[in-house]
Write a protein that binds this DNA or RNA. Structure first.
Lengths: 352, 352
DNA sequence: TTGTAAGCGTTATCAC
DNA sequence: GTGATAACGCTTACAA
């Protein structure tokens, strides 16, 4: 007010000087980490108000503390896809719960080829990697190299990294057994993408050998324990529309038409059902369809999807809790979660 | 390798020493901000590899640079609600686009009573406030006090703050006019929550006067330009299930049953349609229903919702672009976006 | 209870 | 092209 010698924003040192106390005292007033005489406190606050000081600069504080209060969540692919996928959103939901005790912010990052190192430049305290596929693995290395606590959700990260896993293979096998027990022999599969190319095409042994998305591979392995020779088509994503497209491919030729279709996600399954309806096929009388995920689904009319219910929210919560643990200095531990098979009305006895 | 005198992580100074160069030189090798002789460069990189140095500490770098590369997005209420709301996810999608040139991370924060200052402790370069209601306004003050660039999406933040706005009132009036022109006179309204209490109850003048959610108030105002006396019930959120509940309330008594229901969101409208179907009412023959948002909707069967399509993705993109501008030092400007009315098959002539 | 002082790890500036 | 040095703004032992 007297001399305007500060074009720059005031610092805590300015406030301390104005209040006639040491910087450390001013600091303590804001952090509350020690007792301060009410009078001093008031003077500091008054000085802060006077100078328009809005509190300690978080950047400086996080350098000094060695903590930024931010946890990164690395999703593969475009963020838009993540937001559109109900399983991911449910998981994010659980993650915020699991992280709640840290009152940490969640930094959304995508794992893209070019910016694979974006995570390296972000001031984060820990990292949650989701669906660790080939591409994501590059991020994992960076993060580990940096010495940051990390939890991997549904990805193969090696034994040393705490993970949250799902019994994808076993759950897929359960679905397949149910369908087999209903008498089906001509079964076709719709898988999630095999790799980041996300090509919609028949799954050949060669393509499968080069697949990088663990979830896809594991679910397929489980299904093929029961139906070793079932033909499969990989979808380009987990979307209803994509399920429709693949469904049309599978149901095009009446001669080779399967009596059951097992899809690796509920959204794909709904799409297949739509494709069947287009062709005038009744579900489950003419075609049985099963999904995976157990998400709440609109648009199925009176049908209930046969599926395996995965603990999506729990997955996120478990990851959040591990991060919290590791930040507390305790070792992170791998959690194995299981799916629950749910019989619906979209599967029925084989009619031929 | 020789002496293990460093239990702590190596710093760039350690690397420089090991490589026999100045710290500043090592720094430049990592930042690429100046020319370095290939030989020196190699030596530095080798030293880094030797020491297991993974690059500059982002916390220190952001203090020094005054930039953290993080943009905060403040959502009101629980994050889970945000992830479940298609309009919000679409907007987030656009936001990532608008922010792309900054290659900034997105920090998700919620604006809760208790942690209203969480945003004050986060090392962010700019803030996007969404749906600035009474509660969110506290965050706004903190952010402005901190001198951070901020953009408000659909909130009343005063003329000084760059905003992204929607013509909610006009768009709502358009829908109402369409319904009035179809001959409807007994019209009931379903609004979004009025405030953070999110009470499901009849909208009284008193409750309306205390409402803090601008979107709700503006849309209601637009509708009431056409139907000044239409009774309204506020929903507790924008969810199909909530629409079903409110729908049941509105359709309970055949004597007072409206011939048309205008909902402030598509999800609520779908819920109302479900409630109507429960009661054996046909849409649009017995009841016309309109929504708002224009999101892609499953579960409507062959019906197409009459609604106003809002540019949700564009909203986010515009906000992102403003943030990018402001970070470049240019002034942020307010952008007014408009909705587009879309006639569907859920509205028809009044039958009485 | 308050003050002193030493960093936290980096990068910008300016000489050389 | 490289090096010395001074911040960046804060927190936290430790001393008084």
């Amino acid at each position: 007010m007297s001399s305007q010698e500060t074009p720059r924003r005031p610092t805590i040192a300015d406030v301390a000087r104005e209040a006639g106390v040491a910087t450390s005292t001013a600091s303590v007033v804001f952090s509350g980490k020690a007792k301060v005489a009410p009078a001093t406190r008031e003077r500091v606050l008054a000085a802060a108000a006077e100078l328009g000081y809005a509190g300690p600069d978080p950047r400086a504080a996080s350098l000094r503390r060695g903590r930024s209060g931010i946890v990164a969540v690395v999703l593969e692919g475009h963020l838009r896809a993540a937001f559109l996928d109900p399983v991911t959103t449910a998981m994010m939901d659980g993650l915020t719960d699991g992280l709640a005790e840290l009152s940490a912010g969640i930094l959304l990052m995508r794992d893209e080829p070019g910016e694979g190192t974006a995570i390296a430049d972000a001031p984060v305290d820990a990292v949650v990697l989701i669906g660790c596929s080939g591409r994501t693995r590059a991020s994992l290395e960076v993060v580990v190299g940096r010495g940051l606590p990390v939890v991997v959700i549904e990805g193969d990260a090696g034994e040393a990294i705490p993970r949250v896993t799902l019994d994808n293979a076993a759950a897929s096998a359960d679905i397949a057994k149910h369908v087999r027990d209903l008498g089906h022999r001509d079964v076709a599969l719709v898988t999630l993408p095999l790799d980041s190319d996300r090509e919609r095409a028949a799954v050949t042994p060669e393509r499968l050998a080069n697949a990088t998305v663990d979830v896809t591979v594991h679910r397929l392995a489980g299904t093929r324990e029961v139906f070793p020779d079932a033909p499969a088509i990989s979808a380009s994503g987990s979307l209803i529309d994509e399920g429709v497209r693949v469904g049309r491919m599978l149901l095009a030729d009446p001669a080779t038409r399967p009596t059951a279709v097992l899809a690796q996600s509920d959204l794909l399954a709904v799409g297949v059902i739509r494709a069947a309806e287009e062709k005038g096929l009744r579900v489950p009388e003419d075609l049985s369809v099963a999904g995976f995920d157990g998400i709440a689904l609109d648009g199925l009319g009176d049908l209930t999807l046969t599926t395996s219910v995965q603990p999506a929210v729990e997955k996120g919560r478990a990851a959040g809790e591990q991060v919290a643990r590791m930040l507390r200095g305790e070792p992170g531990i791998t959690q194995h979660l299981t799916c629950r098979f749910r019989v619906g009305t979209t599967t029925g006895p084989a009619s031929r």
